[in-house]
């Protein structure tokens, strides 16, 4: 916990930098407005104006926080289409859009990690797969899948697959790779001594796998799951860009950029950040509990 103070200091410095950047970024607009009204802006008036514009080039942190609050709690509690009034999530709230993105992320992440673990087992136990699949798994990641995500979405839509699945496929593609790499490393982590020991116990193949290889791969697995879920979220967000911006955090980004609603873009961005941080933290907690129960906690 000795890192708390430095982390807080750095965060505070970043926010201060942000505030400092708001003034010059938005000053042009404020000056133009004042000139049109025939006034001269004092410095304090200028600063006050740059902090509270409707469509700033760079919104101030408190504006983003305000928008985040308004579009989640306030919208659901008091909004006409909010949860309290209709019993369903409002399509103007970030809770709704966040959930759309999150469900695609989780589905893709689940498929991706299952696929990754299966591939890793195959690679560790089959030399032909080791020689042929691994280089292609690496090469597959140099293909900018994020860049071709729109095409995959559109094509799948044309075939009749819509909704959650196309987005989940993109997430799957992005999240399987870290799991493969981490899991292969983890399954190969037991050294010769340990494998020989299993042999002296006359352990069968499945026994070696379940009692030695699988447990010793757990720390590697969790480390790569954290990377994978962050990647899955990015995949889901980008996958939402092309389909005409219906729902999801990606759709919020796109519609915000169409209509110049910078505050909306930033709040969607922060909602995504909070989601990512929350999921990574959740995996961290599961990791700690699992490793402690296995007696591997550090």
């Amino acid at each position: 916990m000795r890192n708390v103070i430095p982390v807080l200091a750095v965060t505070a410095a970043l926010i201060a930098l942000w505030y400092a950047a708001v003034v010059p970024m938005n000053a042009q607009w404020a000056q133009d407005q004042a000139r049109r009204a025939g006034q001269e802006l004092t410095f304090t008036a200028l600063v006050a104006d740059t902090m509270s514009q409707q469509r700033p080039r760079l919104p101030a942190p408190h504006q983003v926080a305000q928008e985040l609050w308004n579009s989640t709690v306030v919208e659901e509690m008091t909004g006409r289409r909010g949860f309290m009034n209709t019993g369903t999530l409002s399509n103007r709230s970030l809770v709704y859009h966040g959930w759309v993105t999150l469900s695609a992320t989780l589905l893709g992440f689940a498929i991706g990690s299952a696929l990754g673990i299966t591939l890793a087992v195959g690679i560790v136990y089959n030399r032909a797969m080791d020689a042929s699949v691994m280089p292609w798994a690496i090469a597959s990641q140099t293909i900018p899948i994020l860049a071709i995500a729109p095409m995959i979405i559109v094509v799948l839509n044309a075939v009749g697959i819509t909704g959650l699945v196309p987005k989940a496929i993109i997430s799957t593609y992005l999240s399987f790779f870290p799991v493969v790499v981490g899991m292969v490393k983890g399954l190969r982590a037991p050294d010769h001594m340990q494998l020989d020991q299993m042999k002296t116990y006359s352990a069968s193949g499945p026994q070696v796998f379940f009692k030695l290889r699988l447990p010793s791969s757990m720390p590697y697995l969790f480390a790569s799951l954290k990377v994978a879920i962050a990647a899955a979220l990015v995949g889901a967000i980008v996958a939402e860009l092309p389909t005409g911006a219906v729902a999801g955090l990606g759709a919020r980004l796109l519609s915000g950029s169409y209509y110049g609603q910078t505050v909306q873009i930033w709040s969607a961005l922060f909602a995504a950040a909070i989601l990512a941080a929350g999921m990574v933290a959740l995996i961290g907690v599961i990791q700690r509990i699992t490793l402690r129960r296995m007696g591997m906690a550090t």
Partner: peptide
């Protein structure tokens, strides 16, 4: 933390 974020989402802001 920042490296794990969907930084790609800043694209519309930078284009602006």
């Amino acid at each position: 933390f920042l490296a794990a974020l969907p930084i790609i989402g800043t694209a519309p802001i930078f284009v602006m």
